[in-house]
Simulated assay, not measured.
Amino acid sequence: MTARKLSISVPPEIEETIKAAAAEEGKPVSAWLAEAAVEKAHLAELATQARAAMAELLADFEREHGPLPEESRQRARQFLAETGLLDDASGRAA
């Protein structure tokens, strides 16, 4: 695999966190950061898939049973906000 050099800037406390985590895993900082980036991208894709599945499930439910009550929608919004799956600015699934 060909590696490309990438320059990043981080606050000093983050630098120390990164170095400590890489050392704990016995990896070079660059390898640890590359793995962290891949993991972050994978988690973002999973979140996108989860939001699509939630929308599909809600649509299926509402087709069969009618609109979801507002109280249930509010509880769902609160849960999604707490789990980071809700875009705070719009109040809609991110």
Rank of each mutant, 00 (worst) to 15 (best):
L68K: 08
E45A: 15
H42Q: 14
A22Q: 06
F61Q: 02
E82S: 08
H42P: 00
A52C: 01
H42I: 12
A23S: 11
E71D: 13
D87M: 04
D88V: 08
T17K: 13
T83R: 13
L58H: 04
E82L: 09
P11Y: 06
H42F: 14
E39K: 15
V38I: 15
A93Y: 11
E13W: 07
M54H: 06
A76G: 01
M54Q: 09
P69R: 03
T17W: 09
R77M: 12
A59V: 04
A55I: 12
M54L: 15
K5A: 12
A3M: 13
A55H: 05
H65D: 04
E13R: 09
A55F: 04
L85R: 05
A59R: 14
A21S: 13
S9N: 10
E45Y: 10
G26I: 06
A37V: 13
P11L: 08
L80H: 04
V10P: 01
K27W: 00
M1P: 04
A76H: 02
L80W: 10
R63E: 10
L80A: 15
S9A: 11
I18Q: 01
R75C: 02
A3K: 09
L57Y: 05
V38K: 15
A94D: 09
L80M: 15
G66S: 03
A52S: 11
P67L: 12
E13V: 07
L57M: 11
E71R: 11
M54E: 08
D87G: 00
E62Y: 04
A53S: 11
E62I: 06
A47M: 09
A76S: 04
V29S: 01
A53H: 08
T83V: 14
K27E: 02
K40E: 13
P28L: 06
L86M: 10
K27Q: 08
H65N: 15
A34E: 13
A53Q: 10
G66F: 04
A36C: 05
A3P: 00
A50P: 00
A89H: 07
E45R: 14
K19E: 14
A94W: 09
A22M: 06
P67F: 08
R4E: 14
G66R: 03
S7W: 03
E24H: 03
S72Q: 06
L68A: 05
G84R: 07
L85S: 02
E16V: 07
